[in-house]
Design a protein around this nucleic acid. Structure first.
Lengths: 173, 173
DNA sequence: TTACGTGCAAACCGTTTGCACCAAT
DNA sequence: ATTGGTGCAAACGGTTTGCACGTAA
C-alpha cells in the first residue's frame, strides 16, 4: 500500500498506475457543498473549481488565478482568495506546509484522502505516498492520547541516496 | 515510547516526567554553531538565543522579540528576523506548520529531536509526542522510495473524545 | 427583485532590506 | 582597525477588505 508519485518539473504529481478521478465528479461534490451552505454557484466560482481540480498539480493562489482566467478571463484575485477557503472546507483541497515562501494547495485529497508528502532536498521535487501501517499507527496514538483523529499528515524531507552514492540526482532536470 | 505533552494556555508544552534540558547547554550549542560559521556572538544574539530556548513554549517572531527585549531592551525586530534562520540551521529550533496566521517556532527539538504534534480542534491546544514505531515506518518508507530521511514530522489534527462523549473538553480553560 | 458575489484598489501585516552607525574580534 | 552586526524605517509580497456595481436565484 505504498507507492510513489512523481511530480512534474515543479510540483505536478501523478499517481502511478491510477486514473485521476474524473474532474467533473469532484466539481459536483464542491458545487454540492456550496449549495448546502446556501451559496451561489457563479461562473467565477465554477472556473476556480475547474482550475483547481482540473489537474493533479499543486498550485499557488496566483497560479490558480492564472488558470481560472483561462476559463473565465474576468476572474479576479480577490475572488480566488475568497473561494479558496470554501474549497478547503470540502476537504478535497488541502493547504500544503512546504516551507517555501508562498502557500501551495494540493487537490489530490479527492482521490487520495490520506496521502503524505516526501520532499527531496536535492532536487526540490515533491513525492506523494500512502501507507496503511503509518495510518494505523497514527490512529492508535491519537486514540491512546484520548482524541479522535481528524486530519493526519506526514511530511518527510529527504535526500536522494543516488545523489550521494553516484554524485547525481536522478530526479533532477 | 509514547507520551503526552500538555501545552499551556496557548502553546506552552511540558514533557511529562522529563526535565527540560539545561538551557545553558543548548545555548552553548548554538553559540558553537555561530563560531563555526565565523559569526560574532553579540549581546543581541545571546539575548535572542536565551529567549528562544529559555522555556519550552512555542513562540512567534513577535513574542521572541518581546522576550529578548526583557534581557536586552535594545534588541530590534530586524535582528530577531535575521537571527531566526541561524537558530533553525542548528536543528534545535523548528518552524511549525500550524495553519494559523503567523508562524510559530518550537524550541523542543534540542530535548526531543524527533517529536510530532497533535492539535486539538476543540481546545486549540497542541500536544507533543514521540513514537518509535512511527519513526521506524517513516524510515522504511523513505528508503523504499530511494531516499535517505533528513527531517520527519507528523501532524495530527484531532478532536477530544471526551468533548463528544460528555459535552465538554477537559483541555479547555 | 434582492441579497449575495464580484472587481478594483487600497489597506494590512508579517517579513525583508538598504543604509549609516556601532562594536566584537 | 576591520568588517560584520545593528537599529531604523522604508519596501516588499502575499492576503484581506471596503465599496459600488453586477448577477444568480
Amino acid at each position: 500500500m505504498l507507492w510513489e508519485i512523481d511530480f512534474g518539473d515543479t510540483c505536478g504529481p501523478n499517481f502511478h498506475g491510477r486514473t485521476f478521478m474524473d474532474s467533473k465528479e469532484i466539481r459536483d461534490q464542491v458545487v454540492e457543498h456550496l449549495r448546502k451552505k446556501g451559496l451561489r454557484v457563479t461562473k467565477e466560482r465554477t472556473a476556480i473549481i475547474e482550475a483547481a481540480f482540473g489537474s493533479s498539480r499543486h498550485f499557488t493562489a496566483e497560479e490558480l488565478l492564472e488558470e481560472a482566467r483561462k476559463l473565465v478571463p474576468s476572474v479576479s484575485r480577490a475572488t480566488v482568495y475568497r473561494t479558496l477557503p470554501l474549497l478547503l472546507e470540502t476537504g478535497l483541497l488541502h493547504r500544503l506546509d512546504l516551507d517555501r515562501g508562498e502557500r501551495y494547495y494540493d487537490p489530490n485529497y479527492a482521490t487520495h484522502p490520506e496521502h503524505n508528502h516526501l520532499i527531496c532536498l536535492d532536487c526540490n521535487k515533491i513525492f506523494e505516498f500512502e501507507d496503511n501501517h503509518l495510518e494505523a499507527r497514527e490512529n492508535e496514538i491519537t486514540r491512546a492520547l484520548g482524541f479522535a483523529p481528524a486530519t493526519k499528515h506526514v511530511r518527510i524531507e529527504a535526500t536522494c541516496q543516488r545523489l550521494r552514492e553516484l554524485g547525481f540526482c536522478q530526479n533532477r532536470g
